[in-house]
Nucleic acid binder design. Structure first.
Lengths: 339, 339
DNA sequence: TTGAAAGCGCTAACAG
DNA sequence: CTGTTAGCGCTTTCAA
């Protein structure tokens, strides 16, 4: 293995080039005040030795790193993936690179503490600012800008990007009601998450608005997983009066509904209408109705906002209209909440 | 915004607790030799001040970081996402966390240089080892272990995880031949990438083996994108003698074939058999045949190998059988190449 | 235009 | 059990 015993440091370069470390540092940082031939010689030595600056040491001294941080509990989760696609897009368009911190699993250890820890870790040292996705934590100690995407609990002290969950749910319901459905099932999300509750409220209010009494049997629990969607859908479909449409609080559980319907040989949407919130790639293939681009846009917007914050630019944009390419009838907007 | 002017350092904690920095450092690192009440007091100050250690400074001093690095050009690309899912799974099962470095776009600037730079950057400072995915670069300067997943160019000096592209392609062909197909189209991948060429060779050899002459019209270019798959599929299907089956060098281009077939109102697989290499979520919904879990498994295996390397354990496993859940008839193995 | 020297925040001997 | 001290590799004054 081509492993140098010791890392090549700026000292090695300086010695080899016969100059001082500060001179090397100067050419490394593109300062103008270095003689042409000195610079050339140093550059030569650098590439000959294969020197690369030590990120840790460097960011310990300098303010600007051109690096954004992202803290995600689990980068394998479809939700995270969608958000990351948007972030990735914004990063690609910018001069910033991205450092993603993950522990691979939300449940690896105390989530809230871990999140806070990682945010400080990144922000106090390596990055110019951090994006935190679907955070359970509400408070952070950090000296660099921070932005929350879809936080579980909304803390007005931090800027955040959130979906208009209530309004979106109302629109989903209006769509289903217009289709003539009167018995519409709702599969809940995790009750401790703000967005889930707002979707449920949208469901209830739309029903109320339409003059339809709320049937408690039609509201079943869920936890945003496909498995729970499957189980809850079976519960709904085995009712004496089963619903003719099911509104799942998120896309994953909608997929579970799809599985249950398939198993019971119900065709979608002929026998059963299914609508899910959020966005997954599979949706268009299974014929589910979802809000396209939703999560991805949130990531994109959040990244752009964070970059503005890092650059000390004002956060002028308050509300973004979300594109709804897949679904014409159901729309959802991202509300950008500043401060 | 709750932004402390200056970061809380270990010095602040020490002063406030009335002890020395080394004592604080000791409790921070869980050393046993600290008095119970001293430790308690320090812990109290730490949480009161909201102190978190500076990652940069810390990793500059200590050897073990319990942190693995991952360099991916583009984390929004389906290929990267699949590999990352596997890596994420391995990370979740381990005591390591993961730091992903991305520039958001392969083409943001000189890819090879960027990759080498990032690998050194991470490995010389922050992480215990790094995984590099689909690298265009063949050489790296680093003093920590490194493992390549599916490198464009295979360098025997580094351990790597690669698919058995040749064998897999042969098996895909045997499957199609057994189905009775005699005219099988092949959509190539990017010719500069080793795996693409091995898949093509598998296609040709299987044909040869079956005693079927190679028709050059049936081999069309591609670049692993859906767009190219679409275009090349149209080219194939508009031939005087169109193929009855198409083997796309990867999943993305297979998706393009699917689109083209749909547009020409060909049913799959009744009118046209389509097989793609690699693995995407959409595959099962559009009825394509792909190798399940393939990319994800590569990421998983690579991560486990890297952890072994970091722990100075021998790399005993040489060949992994890949699980093939979706597809019984086409299998693919990951060949783990050590040294 | 360059070098010397002072730290950034932290860990790890080495003494007490 | 705890404090002192010496750096890790780098940037940044301050002089020369």
């Amino acid at each position: 293995m081509p492993t140098k015993k010791r890392t090549v440091t700026i000292q090695d370069v300086a010695k080899k080039a016969g100059v001082s470390v500060s001179t090397v540092s100067r050419v490394l940082n593109g300062k103008a005040d270095v003689a042409g031939d000195t610079q050339e010689k140093i550059l030569g030595v650098i590439s000959k030795l294969g020197y690369t600056s030590n990120l840790a040491a460097r960011s310990m001294r300098s303010r600007r790193k051109d690096l954004l941080g992202l803290v995600v509990p689990d980068i394998g989760f479809p939700y995270s993936i969608e958000v990351m696609k948007g972030i990735n897009r914004a990063i690609a368009e910018s001069t910033f690179d991205l450092l993603v911190y993950t522990m691979g699993d939300v449940h690896k250890s105390g989530a809230v503490l871990h999140e806070q820890h990682y945010v400080s870790l990144l922000n106090n040292s390596l990055t110019d600012g951090v994006i935190i996705v679907a955070s359970a934590a509400a408070e952070f100690i950090t000296d660099a800008p921070i932005i929350a995407v879809d936080p579980h609990i909304v803390n007005p002290r931090y800027p955040s990007v959130q979906g208009t969950n209530y309004q979106g749910a109302v629109e989903v319901m209006q769509y289903l009601l217009k289709l003539g459905h009167e018995r519409i099932g709702f599969i809940c999300g995790r009750p401790e998450i703000a967005s889930a509750e707002r979707r449920l409220k949208g469901y209830k209010d739309a029903l109320k608005e339409a003059g339809i009494a709320i049937d408690k049997d039609l509201i079943v629990p869920g936890d945003f997983t496909t498995k729970s969607g499957y189980a809850s859908a079976l519960q709904l479909l085995n009712l004496k009066h089963p619903p003719t449409a099911i509104f799942a609080a998120n896309d994953q559980s909608a997929l579970g509904v799809f599985q249950a319907a398939q198993e019971m040989e119900l065709r979608i949407p002929e026998d059963l209408s299914v609508v899910g919130f959020d966005n997954i790639a599979e949706a268009k293939y299974v014929g589910l109705t979802t809000v396209d681009q939703f999560l991805s846009e949130m990531g994109y917007i959040a990244t752009q906002m964070l970059i503005k914050m890092v650059n000390h630019q004002p956060l002028d944009v308050q509300v973004h209209k979300m594109p709804t390419r897949l679904v014409e009838r159901t729309s959802c907007r991202a509300l950008v909440q500043v401060n």
